[in-house]
Computed example of a mutant assay.
Amino acid sequence: MIEIEVQNETHQSQERLRFAAVPRIGEGIRLREPDGFWASYDVVDLWYQKAEFGDVWIPYLHVRLTPAPAAAEPEPVEVPAQGQAPAKAQVYGIKEVYSFTG
């Protein structure tokens, strides 16, 4: 097991964790959040520093919470209006925006 100091950019915290292998930059790791739930983190940086004793190099990780995938922007949808020309509606979340032509 390799003991690595993990510096969490999202929560501004540091802790030492044990890994079977050193994660690489760009890889994702799962860490427990302060609220007890697990979350995905991206490895932003990895570096080694020489220990104060012997010829030992200690790995350090810098991680950031993986951003949630952005919802795709919806395409305009044709909505027939009663007694008018068809209108285009764009749906954003739970709110609909209509623009009537005619």
Rank of each mutant, 00 (worst) to 15 (best):
V56I: 15
V56Q: 14
V56W: 10
W57A: 14
P59T: 11
P59V: 11
Y60A: 08
Y60E: 06
L61I: 11
L61H: 05
L61W: 02
L61F: 07
H62Q: 15
H62M: 12
V63G: 02
V63W: 01
V63S: 05
V63T: 10
V63F: 04
V63N: 03
R64N: 06
R64V: 07
R64E: 09
R64G: 03
L65T: 07
L65F: 06
T66E: 04
T66N: 02
P67G: 05
P67C: 01
A68M: 08
A68T: 12
A68Q: 15
A68K: 15
A68F: 01
A68P: 03
P69G: 02
P69N: 03
A71E: 05
A71P: 08
A71Y: 00
A72M: 06
A72G: 04
A72Y: 00
E73H: 13
E73P: 05
P74A: 09
P74N: 11
P74E: 02
P74Y: 08
E75C: 00
E75W: 01
E75S: 03
E75F: 00
P76F: 05
P76A: 07
P76S: 04
V77Q: 14
V77G: 00
V77N: 05
E78V: 09
V79F: 07
V79D: 08
V79N: 04
P80E: 11
P80V: 10
A81H: 06
A81V: 14
A81E: 13
Q82V: 12
Q82M: 06
Q82T: 12
Q82I: 08
Q82F: 09
Q82R: 13
G83P: 14
G83F: 14
Q84A: 07
Q84S: 10
Q84K: 10
P86E: 00
P86A: 13
P86G: 09
P86M: 01
P86N: 14
A87L: 01
K88S: 04
K88P: 01
K88M: 10
K88T: 08
